[in-house]
C-alpha cells in the first residue's frame, strides 16, 4: 500500500477563505444553496449576482480557475440531462439556431444548468479551501449527530484504502487476461466487487478490534 498524497479536492493556501472557521463556511454554502434553489427560473439578474458573489469568493481564496474547472466534470450527467430537456419537453416551440425546441423545456434546462453549476462550483470551493477533517469539525460544531460525523470520518479515512484495494484487484484480474471493461467479463467483475465488500467488512471488524484493544467504549473522544 503506497502512501497516497492525493489531495483530490483541497487546494493548499492561506487566504482568508482558507482560514475562515469551517462551520461558518458550511453555513455560507448552505445559505447560498438555499438562495440559488429558491431563485425563480426567469430571474436571470439574480443568477448573475449569485455567480458574481461566488466568483468574488473564489478570487479571494486564490484557488486557480484551472484547478476548479476540470473538477466540475462531475456535473456532466446533470448537464447532459439539462441539455436534453429542450428536446423532450412539451409546450410551445421556438427556434434556436434553426432547431425547433420546446420553450418551457429550454427555460427549465437552462435554469437547471445554472443552479447545478453554481452549486457544484460552490461545493468545490468549500472543498478546495477546507480540509476534510475541518469540514467534519464544522459539521460537529453545527450539531450534526456524533454517529454521522464518525461514519463520515471513517469514509474519508478508508476511501483511499478501499479504492487502492480495488485497483490492485483489477490489476490482478488484467494480469490474468481479464478485461473488466468488457461485458463478457462482468460476472468476474461482480465477484470481485463481492470480494471487495467482504474484505472491507472484515477490515471493519479488524478496525473495531483494534479500537476495542485501545479501550473504545462506543463514543469517539473529542
Amino acid at each position: 500500500m503506497g502512501a497516497g498524497h492525493g489531495h483530490r479536492l483541497h487546494f493548499h493556501g492561506h487566504s482568508p477563505i482558507h482560514r475562515a472557521a469551517p462551520h461558518l463556511k458550511l453555513l455560507a454554502l448552505l445559505g447560498l444553496m438555499l438562495v440559488v434553489v429558491a431563485t425563480p427560473g426567469a430571474w436571470w439578474p439574480a443568477f448573475v449576482v449569485e455567480v458574481l458573489v461566488l466568483v468574488a469568493v473564489i478570487g479571494v481564496s486564490r484557488v486557480p480557475v484551472g484547478y476548479l474547472a476540470p473538477r466540475m466534470v462531475i456535473e456532466l450527467p446533470f448537464a447532459a440531462f439539462a441539455l436534453l430537456l429542450p428536446f423532450v419537453a412539451d409546450g410551445p416551440r421556438i427556434a434556436v439556431l434553426g432547431v425547433e425546441v420546446s420553450e418551457p423545456g429550454l427555460h427549465a434546462g437552462l435554469t437547471l444548468l445554472a443552479k447545478g453549476s453554481i452549486g457544484v462550483l460552490a461545493s468545490l470551493t468549500l472543498a478546495a479551501t477546507t480540509e476534510p477533517q475541518d469540514v467534519l469539525r464544522g459539521l460537529d460544531r453545527l450539531g450534526m449527530p456524533d454517529l454521522i460525523v464518525s461514519i463520515m470520518g471513517f469514509m474519508i479515512r478508508y476511501v483511499d484504502v478501499v479504492t487502492g484495494e480495488l485497483s490492485r484487484m483489477l490489476v490482478a484480474m488484467r494480469s490474468r487476461g481479464c478485461d473488466p471493461r468488457s461485458p463478457r467479463h462482468w460476472p468476474a467483475l461482480a465477484r470481485a466487487m463481492g470480494a471487495l465488500f467482504i474484505r472491507s467488512y472484515e477490515r471493519g471488524e479488524r478496525v473495531h478490534l483494534a479500537m476495542l484493544s485501545r479501550g473504545y467504549d462506543g463514543s469517539l473522544p473529542r
Binding site: R157, R203, R206, V207, M211, S213
Partner: peptide
C-alpha cells in the same frame, strides 16, 4: 496489529 491501516483510523 499487523496491518497499520486497521489501527490508524482517524484523520
Amino acid at each position: 496489529f499487523q496491518d497499520p491501516d486497521d489501527q490508524l483510523f482517524l484523520g
